[in-house]
Design a protein around this nucleic acid. Sequence first.
DNA 1: TCAACCCATATTTTCGAAAATCATACCGTT
DNA 2: AACGGTATGATTTTCGAAAATATGGGTTGA
Lengths: 233, 233
Amino acid sequence: MPDSAIRPRKEFGKTIAADITHRLREEIIACALPPGEPLRFDVLRERFGASFTTLREALTALAAEGLVDAQEQRGFRVAPVSRQDLIEITDARVLVEVELIRRSIQRGDDDWEIAVISTLHRLKRIEQRDPEHPLRDPEWKIAHRQFHQALVSACGTATLLAIRAELFDRAERYRHLSANFRPRPRDKAGEHQAIMQAAISRNADLAVQLIETHIRSTADNVATYAAHLLDTE
Amino acid sequence: MPDSAIRPRKEFGKTIAADITHRLREEIIACALPPGEPLRFDVLRERFGASFTTLREALTALAAEGLVDAQEQRGFRVAPVSRQDLIEITDARVLVEVELIRRSIQRGDDDWEIAVISTLHRLKRIEQRDPEHPLRDPEWKIAHRQFHQALVSACGTATLLAIRAELFDRAERYRHLSANFRPRPRDKAGEHQAIMQAAISRNADLAVQLIETHIRSTADNVATYAAHLLDTE
DNA sequence: TCAACCCATATTTTCGAAAATCATACCGTT
DNA sequence: AACGGTATGATTTTCGAAAATATGGGTTGA
């Protein structure tokens, strides 16, 4: 079946709807679709080559994830940003991530340690190779995400992991929001290294403290350098 | 415009999709649609009088909430239940609810106290009036939900409240699952009273401890009396 | 001048037919 | 009998037209 010739665009997921959900999510997180932007069906239809209903399904899913704002009978728009929302996401992330790190440190086996070490290694390699602004490098983004994912991967609870993933996405959108205005990234490499060491040495209290600082200082940075985007809404 | 004559069914939400999402959610939580049940479009179409795409949108939303399981290209089914899932939901609820109770106790004003007291009062009235099995009484269900909602309503973070609401729904489904097999409800009235008093007297540590016990003992009850439904899956 | 109303247009929302995909039973071959 | 492939029916998934609803502008009347 030469289906790739007939329908070339179905990279992620088996259905078109799942595929578009994925692509839209990426664009919203990257702020290629800026916060508050109206999502009109005519435009999306042309952009993604899908029908009304398929797009509607994707937007509904993203609305449940908090990346899209559904206004009944008045369409959809990219979820707006606000200082309050950033604070709430940050607090929620700390609450969940701290719990998951503790569980992972308690339950993690050899494979977990290897995953943590190797994902950090890859992250550092990318940072060395290309000292540019990390958030503009798609590879860095993926590696960064995978390192943090690895840290909590041994927690043993899919429910909290799913919640964590949602919050991570929403937070990453804010990081992108400020990426264009942040003068130079702070020393994340050192922080990641310290977190890895605390985790591998099973020092849960230290790891938790480092993670909380990591999350909160990132959010503070965003709040500082994207201030002009957060208050005028 | 006599729209009620033309389209009588749009009780919750402005759009049909939102309405059906709501109705389906209720039925799944109440186990009127049992766990694992395939959700075929033909059947749903007749049951809810909506078209394929509208139903699809509703199911997609519920899948994001964890009440429906979407199997790509193979349709939807009511999310299955399992002992592990119950444990995870319970742990997640404790984590979130404890945080929200603390915040509410710290921030709650007079209106919050009034809401807590009055929702508990209504709950007790319903329990006195009708000593039957509470979970079979829709009024009790609503009052119970509203009491717990009131307790955390002053927390000041919509993000965590939304997560809490999702987890509450998923847990309530498990309560319904065991309701038909539980011989007699334990003394919830006393527990609720104690929680209310701890909250109003701003004794956060006690309130947190009571809530955790409340949530966990309910889950234990479910695990005991619905054991035959949790292991054979 | 201003508000209220109605109309025209833009946009969303819903529908059922049509296409794509999956599941099953059947058949032929080994 | 076991296996692999294929046709068939059942089901999901997608599409674009049509209905429903919102938006904006212009007119009227006070």
